[in-house]
Design a protein around this nucleic acid. Structure first.
Length: 548
RNA sequence: GGGCCCGUGGCUUAGCAUGGAUAGAGCGACGGCCUUCUAAGCCGUAGAUCGCGGGUUCAAAUCCCGCCGGGUCCGCCA
């Protein structure tokens, strides 16, 4: 709805309606700074320019009033806008906030090596990727999500050998058991450098598609994947497909792109196959001297494959892959394939330094989820709710806290993990869930008292109610911002603001005890807020609990 | 050494793209609020040289240059 208001403001401003000068502000529902710009060109005072623009404005139905103040042109929404906002939220219900942008988009995220469990760095990727996928769907896109399984690397050969040599510890969750074998095998390799030959041999055999070896890889990769998938499910993260990189060797795409590059005379073959392009600072190896391909070769093939099937694609990658991302795009450009948009996020590190699966230095997502669950359970332990319900709530609260803590931080900010902060449950996500539960509670009580019709009345809105309704109107505006900016944190922030403003309303505006018109009016606001919070939490992959 | 990213109250952080009206929020601290729709809540108070220095501008957290601190990349690794 806010987008409609915004559109009307742009139209009203006519030749001055450049979006670049529109600002959200505390002083107005929308304001334009265009007068500052023009005053410079015309050598007039901003306020005078603003006033003269004001005189020629053509107001639309959703613009209630306009003022020129300190050089700003301030727009205020009309009662009609407020009423249409509340009515459309209640009418559209779970569809409120949707947009109708069309397009097929592929979102690839997480894609952690199947050599152990997901750790808290991986899940930053998962949470950003999954939230983007949800928001893109809300925006109208046809979204497919992929987990790209790196089954071909050196680390996988080591993992396979590790599992075979040391077995899997059945007392552990399967992916943790795989990591244990992987760590042991790395240690073994450090102590027995000769054994490295075996690793190389296995890699070659796997790439050549040796049936027996493929079976061995599949078994181990699937073990890790099974555990990883369980973790992702707990996090409410689902991938439509798991795409194995070896697939692109087997289906001919790797050969295809190598031939294409070769036919352009871009490959120097001196043992290894090396890409020759002048404008790049580093040479890129595409095939090792032993004939096996490297990661980027298969990944380029995968992206060419993507490019043939999807209109757009988005990758979520750690910031350590920035140079890699440029190399990948460069190659795709040469091959005339569509380029992915890449969302980079900075590292999650531990106070003592960065994480490493190989060295066994990481905090697993499972461990964090487990500890959060126990914290959440402690809070409701003593309450009179049945046991199953308690567990369900504790689980939802734990995942909410976890997802929100990650999604709220702008991707480009580095994070340092801190147990004490991570386990604090009396803030952020739970506050939003709590606000939603509160709204539900009011509505439940209203129903039990015989619910009247809901009827929002623009004229009787208090300042706080008005502020809340304006905020509710901005849902799709923020959906659109995330789609354009690929920064899901701005949506997380928006939902938090709705919750904060709702609580401000809750405190100062009795609903059930209010008199006739006010009661209906406020119940409509509560219901609309409930819908916005619920739809918003859904986009964040957080369960909107009705009771807490 | 070169590239990229980050640096905003004690802590975490929004705002930076597109310069503009008092730098917004949460945690923590301190003081208060449960005979009133869920206290996982609410109210109040204290707390900021927006890393440092220059520049552009009527106006800079925001743009430009230099520097400092932290991270990261620069593999026939993935």
């Amino acid at each position: 709805m806010f987008l409609k208001f915004r559109q009307q403001v742009i139209e009203a401003l006519k030749e001055y309606g450049d979006e670049k000068f529109l600002r959200e502000s505390d002083h107005a529902d929308l304001s334009s700074t265009i007068a500052f710009k023009i005053s410079k060109e015309k050598n007039q005072k901003p306020q005078e320019v603003a006033e003269s623009i004001l005189e020629n404005l053509e107001l639309k139905e959703y613009i209630g009033s306009v003022e020129a103040l300190n050089g700003y042109i301030n727009f205020f929404a009309s009662y009609e806008f407020l009423e249409d906002t509340i009515n459309s939220i209640i009418d559209l219900d779970e569809n409120y906030g949707s947009l109708s942008i069309k397009g097929n988009v592929l979102i690839e995220h997480t894609s952690a090596n199947p050599d152990g469990p997901l750790h808290i760095g991986h899940i930053r990727n998962s949470i950003i990727g999954d939230t983007l996928a949800r928001i893109f769907r809300k925006a109208g896109y046809n979204v497919t999500t992929h987990y790209y399984v790196n089954d071909m690397g050196r680390q996988m050969a080591i993992t396979v050998l590790g599992v075979e040599r040391f077995g899997v510890d059945s007392s552990l969750k399967i992916d943790h058991a795989v990591a244990k074998a992987y760590i042991q095998m790395n240690k073994f390799l450090d102590e027995n450098p000769d054994f490295d030959k075996e690793v190389g041999k296995l890699m070659i055999e796997y790439e050549q598609g040796d049936e027996e070896v493929v079976k061995r890889f599949r078994e181990v990769v699937n073990m890790a994947l099974k555990g990883i998938r369980e973790t992702l499910t707990k996090l409410n993260v689902r991938h439509d497909e798991y795409v194995w990189e070896s697939e692109f060797i087997r289906n001919g795409y790797v050969d295809r792109i190598l031939n294409e590059l070769d036919s352009k005379n871009l490959i120097r073959k001196d043992g290894a196959w090396i890409l020759e392009i002048d404008d790049f600072e580093k040479e890129i190896v595409l095939k090792r001297e032993n004939g096996t391909t490297v990661y980027i070769t298969r990944d380029v093939a995968y992206h060419v494959w993507k490019s043939e099937r999807f209109e757009e694609s988005i990758n979520v990658l750690g910031a350590d892959h920035k140079l890699y991302g440029m190399q990948l795009k460069k190659l795709l450009e040469i091959l005339s394939a569509k380029l992915p948009k890449i969302v980079f996020f900075e590292f999650v590190s531990l106070p003592e330094g960065s994480m490493s699966t190989r060295r066994g230095k990481f905090i697993s997502a499972d461990e964090l989820i487990d500890k959060l669950y126990r914290e959440a359970y402690k809070i409701i332990e003593g309450r009179e709710i049945d046991e199953e319900e308690k567990k369900r709530i504790a689980k939802a609260v734990a995942i909410a806290a976890l997802r929100y803590d990650f999604v709220k931080i702008a991707p480009e900010k580095p994070m340092t993990f801190d147990w004490k902060k991570a386990l604090g449950l009396e803030n952020t996500a739970n506050y939003i869930q709590y606000s939603h539960a509160r709204a539900c509670s009011i509505l439940r009580n209203a129903v039990s008292q015989g619910m009247p019709d809901l009827e929002f009345i623009g004229e009787i809105c208090s300042d706080i109610e008005r502020k809340l309704v304006m905020l509710l109107s901005k849902f799709s505006y923020y959906v659109l911002r995330v789609v354009k900016e690929l920064r899901p944190n701005v949506f997380a922030d928006y939902i938090m603001n709705v919750a904060i403003t709702f609580n401000e309303f809750y405190r100062t505006h009795p609903v059930l005890k209010a008199e006739s018109d006010y009661r209906m009016h406020r119940l409509a606001i509560v219901d609309a807020t409930r819908i916005v919070l619920r739809n918003g939490l859904e986009l964040l992959g957080i369960e909107a609990l009705e009771k807490m």
